[in-house]
Protein backbone atom coordinates (compact mmCIF):
# COMPACT_ATOMS: atom_id res chain seq x y z
CA UNK A 1 0.00 0.00 0.00
CA UNK A 2 1.42 3.45 -0.91
CA UNK A 3 2.21 5.93 1.82
CA UNK A 4 -0.08 8.42 0.25
CA UNK A 5 -2.81 7.78 -2.27
CA UNK A 6 -2.64 10.10 -5.28
CA UNK A 7 -5.71 12.20 -5.87
CA UNK A 8 -6.54 11.23 -9.43
CA UNK A 9 -8.62 13.57 -11.43
CA UNK A 10 -11.79 12.88 -13.35
CA UNK A 11 -11.77 15.14 -16.36
CA UNK A 12 -15.07 16.71 -17.27
CA UNK A 13 -16.47 18.38 -20.36
CA UNK A 14 -15.92 22.08 -21.04
CA UNK A 15 -19.13 23.82 -22.07
CA UNK A 16 -19.96 27.52 -21.86
CA UNK A 17 -16.91 28.18 -19.70
CA UNK A 18 -17.98 25.61 -17.07
CA UNK A 19 -16.93 22.02 -16.47
CA UNK A 20 -20.08 19.91 -16.38
CA UNK A 21 -20.17 16.13 -16.28
CA UNK A 22 -21.81 14.50 -19.24
CA UNK A 23 -25.56 14.43 -18.81
CA UNK A 24 -25.40 10.79 -19.85
CA UNK A 25 -23.42 9.78 -16.76
CA UNK A 26 -21.00 7.77 -18.88
CA UNK A 27 -17.24 7.77 -18.55
CA UNK A 28 -14.25 6.47 -20.48
CA UNK A 29 -10.91 5.21 -19.26
CA UNK A 30 -7.64 6.48 -20.59
CA UNK A 31 -4.68 4.17 -20.34
CA UNK A 32 -1.01 5.08 -20.56
CA UNK A 33 1.03 3.69 -23.40
CA UNK A 34 2.36 1.00 -21.07
CA UNK A 35 -1.01 -0.13 -19.72
CA UNK A 36 -2.30 1.32 -16.45
CA UNK A 37 -5.38 3.51 -16.35
CA UNK A 38 -4.29 7.09 -15.79
CA UNK A 39 -7.51 9.04 -16.02
CA UNK A 40 -11.24 8.88 -16.34
CA UNK A 41 -13.05 11.16 -18.71
CA UNK A 42 -16.61 11.94 -19.65
CA UNK A 43 -18.02 10.20 -22.68
CA UNK A 44 -20.10 12.99 -24.19
CA UNK A 45 -23.56 12.37 -25.63
CA UNK A 46 -25.66 13.99 -28.32
CA UNK A 47 -27.32 16.08 -25.64
CA UNK A 48 -23.94 17.38 -24.47
CA UNK A 49 -23.19 18.34 -28.06
CA UNK A 50 -26.47 20.23 -28.23
CA UNK A 51 -25.67 22.09 -25.00
CA UNK A 52 -22.24 22.95 -26.35
CA UNK A 53 -23.67 24.26 -29.62
CA UNK A 54 -26.14 26.39 -27.68
CA UNK A 55 -23.31 27.84 -25.60
CA UNK A 56 -21.25 28.48 -28.73
CA UNK A 57 -24.14 30.19 -30.51
CA UNK A 58 -24.67 32.50 -27.57
CA UNK A 59 -20.96 33.30 -27.26
CA UNK A 60 -20.33 33.75 -30.97
CA UNK A 61 -22.28 36.98 -31.37
CA UNK A 62 -20.29 38.90 -28.75
CA UNK A 63 -17.00 37.33 -29.72
CA UNK A 64 -17.51 38.28 -33.36
CA UNK A 65 -18.42 41.82 -32.36
CA UNK A 66 -15.42 42.20 -30.05
CA UNK A 67 -12.63 44.32 -31.45
CA UNK A 68 -9.98 42.41 -33.32
CA UNK A 69 -7.40 43.88 -30.94
CA UNK A 70 -9.25 42.35 -28.01
CA UNK A 71 -9.50 38.92 -29.67
CA UNK A 72 -5.77 39.10 -30.36
CA UNK A 73 -5.02 39.87 -26.73
CA UNK A 74 -7.28 37.11 -25.45
CA UNK A 75 -5.54 34.56 -27.66
CA UNK A 76 -2.15 35.81 -26.55
CA UNK A 77 -3.33 35.50 -22.96
CA UNK A 78 -4.24 31.89 -23.71
CA UNK A 79 -0.67 31.29 -24.87
CA UNK A 80 0.54 32.74 -21.57
CA UNK A 81 -1.72 30.40 -19.61
CA UNK A 82 -0.55 27.43 -21.68
CA UNK A 83 3.06 28.33 -20.97
CA UNK A 84 2.21 28.30 -17.26
CA UNK A 85 0.66 24.86 -17.59
CA UNK A 86 3.41 23.60 -19.83
CA UNK A 87 4.56 20.75 -17.59
CA UNK A 88 1.03 19.51 -17.11
CA UNK A 89 0.31 19.72 -20.86
CA UNK A 90 3.52 17.80 -21.57
CA UNK A 91 2.47 15.11 -19.12
CA UNK A 92 -0.94 14.89 -20.77
CA UNK A 93 0.53 14.68 -24.25
CA UNK A 94 2.94 11.97 -23.06
CA UNK A 95 0.07 9.70 -22.02
CA UNK A 96 -0.75 9.02 -25.66
CA UNK A 97 2.93 8.59 -26.55
CA UNK A 98 3.35 12.25 -27.44
CA UNK A 99 5.84 13.82 -29.79
CA UNK A 100 8.81 15.78 -28.51
CA UNK A 101 8.23 19.51 -28.64
CA UNK A 102 4.50 19.34 -29.29
CA UNK A 103 3.46 21.60 -26.41
CA UNK A 104 5.97 24.31 -27.21
CA UNK A 105 4.89 24.28 -30.82
CA UNK A 106 1.22 24.44 -29.81
CA UNK A 107 1.87 27.50 -27.67
CA UNK A 108 3.75 29.18 -30.50
CA UNK A 109 0.88 28.41 -32.86
CA UNK A 110 -1.57 30.17 -30.56
CA UNK A 111 0.74 33.19 -30.54
CA UNK A 112 0.85 33.07 -34.34
CA UNK A 113 -2.94 33.16 -34.67
CA UNK A 114 -3.29 35.77 -31.93
CA UNK A 115 -1.48 38.01 -34.36
CA UNK A 116 -3.81 37.18 -37.24
CA UNK A 117 -6.96 38.34 -35.43
CA UNK A 118 -6.43 41.97 -36.43
CA UNK A 119 -4.70 41.26 -39.75
CA UNK A 120 -6.56 38.56 -41.60
CA UNK A 121 -9.26 40.95 -42.89
CA UNK A 122 -6.47 42.92 -44.54
CA UNK A 123 -4.94 39.80 -46.06
CA UNK A 124 -8.21 38.31 -47.28
CA UNK A 125 -10.40 41.34 -47.96
CA UNK A 126 -9.99 44.10 -50.53
CA UNK A 127 -11.41 47.14 -52.26
CA UNK A 128 -12.82 46.39 -55.68
CA UNK A 129 -12.36 48.66 -58.69
CA UNK A 130 -15.84 48.40 -60.20
CA UNK A 131 -16.69 50.18 -63.43
CA UNK A 132 -19.00 52.81 -62.02
CA UNK A 133 -19.40 55.51 -59.37
CA UNK A 134 -19.45 53.13 -56.41
CA UNK A 135 -17.36 52.53 -53.35
CA UNK A 136 -17.10 48.74 -53.30
CA UNK A 137 -15.24 46.57 -50.83
CA UNK A 138 -15.13 43.00 -49.60
CA UNK A 139 -14.64 42.05 -45.97
CA UNK A 140 -14.35 38.60 -44.40
CA UNK A 141 -16.69 37.90 -41.49
CA UNK A 142 -16.77 34.88 -39.18
CA UNK A 143 -19.10 32.12 -40.37
CA UNK A 144 -20.50 31.46 -36.87
CA UNK A 145 -20.20 28.19 -34.96
CA UNK A 146 -17.64 25.66 -36.17
CA UNK A 147 -17.58 21.97 -35.27
CA UNK A 148 -13.98 20.84 -34.87
CA UNK A 149 -13.04 17.16 -35.03
CA UNK A 150 -9.47 16.59 -33.86
CA UNK A 151 -6.83 14.12 -35.00
CA UNK A 152 -5.21 11.51 -32.76
CA UNK A 153 -1.70 12.28 -33.90
CA UNK A 154 -0.39 15.34 -32.11
CA UNK A 155 -3.52 15.55 -29.93
CA UNK A 156 -2.69 19.01 -28.57
CA UNK A 157 -0.93 20.56 -31.56
CA UNK A 158 -3.53 19.17 -33.94
CA UNK A 159 -6.36 20.58 -31.83
CA UNK A 160 -4.72 23.97 -31.49
CA UNK A 161 -4.00 24.09 -35.23
CA UNK A 162 -7.67 23.47 -35.99
CA UNK A 163 -9.12 25.74 -33.30
CA UNK A 164 -6.84 28.79 -33.38
CA UNK A 165 -7.59 29.89 -36.97
CA UNK A 166 -11.30 29.40 -36.33
CA UNK A 167 -11.39 31.38 -33.10
CA UNK A 168 -9.06 34.22 -34.09
CA UNK A 169 -11.53 35.15 -36.85
CA UNK A 170 -14.40 35.60 -34.37
CA UNK A 171 -16.02 32.19 -34.63
CA UNK A 172 -17.02 30.05 -31.68
CA UNK A 173 -16.43 26.31 -31.77
CA UNK A 174 -17.42 22.94 -30.39
CA UNK A 175 -14.43 20.64 -30.31
CA UNK A 176 -14.36 16.86 -30.27
CA UNK A 177 -10.99 16.01 -28.74
CA UNK A 178 -8.77 13.22 -29.97
CA UNK A 179 -10.45 9.94 -29.12
CA UNK A 180 -7.19 8.11 -28.44
CA UNK A 181 -5.43 10.85 -26.46
CA UNK A 182 -8.02 13.23 -25.04
CA UNK A 183 -6.31 14.30 -21.82
CA UNK A 184 -4.29 17.12 -23.34
CA UNK A 185 -7.53 18.70 -24.56
CA UNK A 186 -8.92 18.57 -21.02
CA UNK A 187 -5.84 20.28 -19.63
CA UNK A 188 -6.08 22.87 -22.41
CA UNK A 189 -9.68 23.50 -21.35
CA UNK A 190 -8.39 24.49 -17.92
CA UNK A 191 -5.94 26.90 -19.54
CA UNK A 192 -8.75 28.38 -21.61
CA UNK A 193 -11.00 28.70 -18.55
CA UNK A 194 -8.34 30.72 -16.76
CA UNK A 195 -7.48 32.89 -19.76
CA UNK A 196 -9.74 35.79 -20.70
CA UNK A 197 -11.56 33.78 -23.36
CA UNK A 198 -15.31 34.35 -22.88
CA UNK A 199 -17.17 31.20 -21.86
CA UNK A 200 -18.66 29.36 -24.81
CA UNK A 201 -16.18 30.53 -27.45
CA UNK A 202 -14.32 27.23 -27.17
CA UNK A 203 -16.25 24.19 -25.94
CA UNK A 204 -14.48 20.85 -25.64
CA UNK A 205 -16.09 17.44 -25.64
CA UNK A 206 -14.45 14.07 -25.09
CA UNK A 207 -16.12 11.03 -26.52
CA UNK A 208 -16.37 8.62 -29.40
CA UNK A 209 -16.17 9.73 -33.01
CA UNK A 210 -18.40 6.96 -34.22
CA UNK A 211 -21.14 8.19 -31.89
CA UNK A 212 -20.74 11.95 -32.19
CA UNK A 213 -19.62 12.66 -35.76
CA UNK A 214 -23.10 12.05 -37.24
CA UNK A 215 -24.51 14.61 -34.80
CA UNK A 216 -21.81 17.15 -35.62
CA UNK A 217 -22.70 16.60 -39.27
CA UNK A 218 -26.43 17.06 -38.93
CA UNK A 219 -26.72 19.73 -36.21
CA UNK A 220 -28.29 22.82 -37.78
CA UNK A 221 -26.74 25.14 -35.24
CA UNK A 222 -23.30 24.35 -36.60
CA UNK A 223 -22.28 26.48 -39.57
CA UNK A 224 -19.01 24.84 -40.57
CA UNK A 225 -16.86 21.79 -39.91
CA UNK A 226 -13.10 21.68 -39.45
CA UNK A 227 -11.67 18.18 -39.21
CA UNK A 228 -8.46 16.24 -39.59
CA UNK A 229 -7.40 12.67 -39.06
CA UNK A 230 -10.87 11.30 -39.73
CA UNK A 231 -11.21 8.30 -42.02
CA UNK A 232 -12.90 8.26 -45.39
CA UNK A 233 -16.22 7.08 -44.00
CA UNK A 234 -16.36 9.77 -41.32
CA UNK A 235 -15.47 12.35 -43.92
CA UNK A 236 -18.39 11.18 -46.04
CA UNK A 237 -20.74 11.29 -43.05
CA UNK A 238 -19.60 14.84 -42.26
CA UNK A 239 -20.07 16.04 -45.82
CA UNK A 240 -23.39 14.31 -46.26
CA UNK A 241 -24.80 15.79 -43.06
CA UNK A 242 -23.35 19.17 -44.00
CA UNK A 243 -25.40 19.14 -47.21
CA UNK A 244 -28.60 19.40 -45.14
CA UNK A 245 -27.94 23.02 -44.14
CA UNK A 246 -24.99 23.71 -46.44
CA UNK A 247 -22.33 23.81 -43.76
CA UNK A 248 -18.92 24.83 -44.97
CA UNK A 249 -16.59 21.84 -44.62
CA UNK A 250 -12.82 21.71 -44.43
CA UNK A 251 -11.39 18.23 -43.89
CA UNK A 252 -7.62 17.96 -44.10
CA UNK A 253 -6.88 15.14 -46.54
CA UNK A 254 -4.21 14.00 -46.11
CA UNK A 255 -3.61 15.09 -42.56
CA UNK A 256 -0.81 17.67 -42.63
CA UNK A 257 2.41 17.50 -40.69
CA UNK A 258 1.30 19.62 -37.74
CA UNK A 259 4.88 20.69 -37.17
CA UNK A 260 5.00 22.23 -40.64
CA UNK A 261 4.50 25.93 -39.99
CA UNK A 262 4.17 26.60 -43.72
CA UNK A 263 1.14 24.35 -43.99
CA UNK A 264 -0.47 25.23 -40.67
CA UNK A 265 0.17 28.94 -40.23
CA UNK A 266 -1.45 31.06 -42.89
CA UNK A 267 -4.54 33.19 -43.51
CA UNK A 268 -5.58 30.44 -45.94
CA UNK A 269 -6.20 28.28 -42.86
CA UNK A 270 -8.61 30.98 -41.63
CA UNK A 271 -10.28 31.53 -44.99
CA UNK A 272 -12.57 28.45 -44.97
CA UNK A 273 -14.25 29.85 -41.83
CA UNK A 274 -15.13 33.30 -43.04
CA UNK A 275 -17.92 34.59 -45.23
CA UNK A 276 -17.03 37.29 -47.70
CA UNK A 277 -19.40 40.22 -47.57
CA UNK A 278 -19.25 42.69 -50.44
CA UNK A 279 -20.65 46.15 -49.83
CA UNK A 280 -21.63 48.68 -52.47
CA UNK A 281 -22.36 52.34 -51.92
CA UNK A 282 -22.76 55.05 -54.56
CA UNK A 283 -20.12 57.73 -54.50
CA UNK A 284 -19.89 61.09 -56.15
CA UNK A 285 -23.33 62.57 -55.61
Amino acid sequence: MPERLNVTKTYKLFIGGAFPRTESGRSMKVAAADGPVVAHLCRASRKDLRDAVEAARAAHVKWAAATAYLRAQVLYRLAEMMEGKRRELEGAVAIGGGIEGEVARAIDRVVHYAGWADKYPQALGCANPVAGPYHNFTVPEPVGVVGVVCPDDAPLLGLVSLVAPVVCAGNACVVLASERSPVAACVLAEAIATSDMPGGVVNILTGLREELIPHFASHRGIDAIHAAGVGEEHRRVLELGAAENLKRVKVWVPEPDWFDDGACESPWCIEPFVEFKTIWHPSGS
Partner: peptide, 30 residues
Protein backbone atom coordinates in the same frame (compact mmCIF):
# COMPACT_ATOMS: atom_id res chain seq x y z
CA UNK B 1 -22.93 38.09 -49.12
CA UNK B 2 -23.76 41.23 -51.06
CA UNK B 3 -25.07 44.35 -49.38
CA UNK B 4 -26.24 47.21 -51.55
CA UNK B 5 -26.38 50.53 -49.69
CA UNK B 6 -28.56 53.17 -51.33
CA UNK B 7 -28.50 51.11 -54.51
CA UNK B 8 -29.57 47.62 -55.60
CA UNK B 9 -28.79 44.92 -58.16
CA UNK B 10 -25.42 46.24 -59.23
CA UNK B 11 -22.90 43.77 -60.63
CA UNK B 12 -19.30 43.94 -61.73
CA UNK B 13 -16.66 41.35 -62.58
CA UNK B 14 -14.34 42.85 -59.99
CA UNK B 15 -16.98 42.52 -57.27
CA UNK B 16 -17.37 39.08 -55.63
CA UNK B 17 -20.88 37.67 -55.56
CA UNK B 18 -22.26 34.82 -53.45
CA UNK B 19 -24.17 33.93 -50.34
CA UNK B 20 -24.11 33.23 -46.65
CA UNK B 21 -25.99 30.30 -45.10
CA UNK B 22 -28.27 28.34 -47.43
CA UNK B 23 -27.67 30.72 -50.33
CA UNK B 24 -24.54 28.68 -51.00
CA UNK B 25 -20.80 28.95 -50.61
CA UNK B 26 -17.90 30.24 -52.63
CA UNK B 27 -17.79 33.54 -54.48
CA UNK B 28 -17.95 34.41 -58.15
CA UNK B 29 -16.11 37.38 -59.50
CA UNK B 30 -13.37 39.47 -57.99
Amino acid sequence: GVVWLNTYNKFDPASPFGGFKESGFGREGG
